[in-house]
Design a protein around this nucleic acid. Sequence first.
DNA 1: CACCTAAACGGACTGTACCCCGGTTATCTT
DNA 2: AAGATAACCGGGGTACAGTCCGTTTAGGTG
Lengths: 205, 205
Amino acid sequence: MDRPLVPFGEPPAERADAARNRVLLLAAAREMIDELGVEKVTMDGLAERAGLGKGTVFRRFGTRAGIFRALLDHDEHALQARVLSGPPPLGPGADPVDRLIAYGRARIDFLVGRHQLARATLDRKAPIPAAGSPMFSRPHIRMLLTQARLGVPEVDSLSLQLTSALEGPLLLYLSADPAEDADRTAAGRALADSWQSLIERIARR
Amino acid sequence: MDRPLVPFGEPPAERADAARNRVLLLAAAREMIDELGVEKVTMDGLAERAGLGKGTVFRRFGTRAGIFRALLDHDEHALQARVLSGPPPLGPGADPVDRLIAYGRARIDFLVGRHQLARATLDRKAPIPAAGSPMFSRPHIRMLLTQARLGVPEVDSLSLQLTSALEGPLLLYLSADPAEDADRTAAGRALADSWQSLIERIARR
DNA sequence: CACCTAAACGGACTGTACCCCGGTTATCTT
DNA sequence: AAGATAACCGGGGTACAGTCCGTTTAGGTG
């Protein structure tokens, strides 16, 4: 009947086999993506490749999109680290407006290079928010916006809209065809320049 | 061997039975959506309800998302008509900046009221662009931006980003749960106000 | 070390989007 | 009006996401 003293301590910590299988699955997923492309990665195939049962795959990631989300999350940590504690203007210390611009450029670069993956994280019937990683982009943009003291009345909505302006083009409106990578790189450059001028326009007083 | 005189005339015009079935299917789809919700509309169910074969449904709409796209397209015509020839500021005649603001408000209203439907038009592996209707929003925003003579260097990218800022929040980041309609209405109001101030900031010189 | 329990595992099962192709029918030609 | 032809139709077939539940195992307990 005894319960842990801390009512909401960490969830009991992942079991060793579970952790091992998770890295196994993520590695297998990366391989399959490289070899076959994102679209060809199936849950059955992935399970077989990793030498595990399908149930295990779903227990770990919940949904197909969940796998890609996990993969993308992992890649994102490097970017987030640069943002949180790297050198300015991306990292702390620079003027908020410059940081906004730098963040947009970095984020676009990031998404352009992982376009397939990012799109695969989209999921019809996502019960909660759910896209690329508004988890990080949105609050960060919101924070910089606030710091910039622009006198924006609707910071929450504006940060939502700017997040969409930043990520939406890559997630929603750019072709998913892997053959068009060159186009996408060019489009990315244009988006980055445009992001900068968008922010500058918003920020000037 | 004779071919039509006009090399690329209309595609041969839909056969009468095909047209009849299309309206049948669209009507059935609307009913099912009202009764069961978007998520519960299946291709089999729809076919049965319309008294047709499953193959027919796919021939007409190509994909599940295609049905919802068709439904949304239909609804959009009314909005587009108001934009193209209705009274200002939404219709022609007003200042381009005012029209941008009015368009954003109208579009947000529209999408808030059809959130479920709009999200259902999203489709993994969409062969071509493919979302809500950038078909109309993007060029229209682009045109108004150009008319406003703001000296924007990247009109194409900016219009893409503004389209995302406008539609992205509804398509990507707002919960799909139909129970939260009230929240969504409030969020829509906030987005609309925020859109206005975003445009005003971009436009002021 | 033997035991116990919660967590992890696996793979059969289900529901559904999407494909295929032989048969049917509308529309055009003469 | 009959024949030709292209489009349409139906429904069974396939592949894949996601669920369920009986079985196995990690890792703590005495």
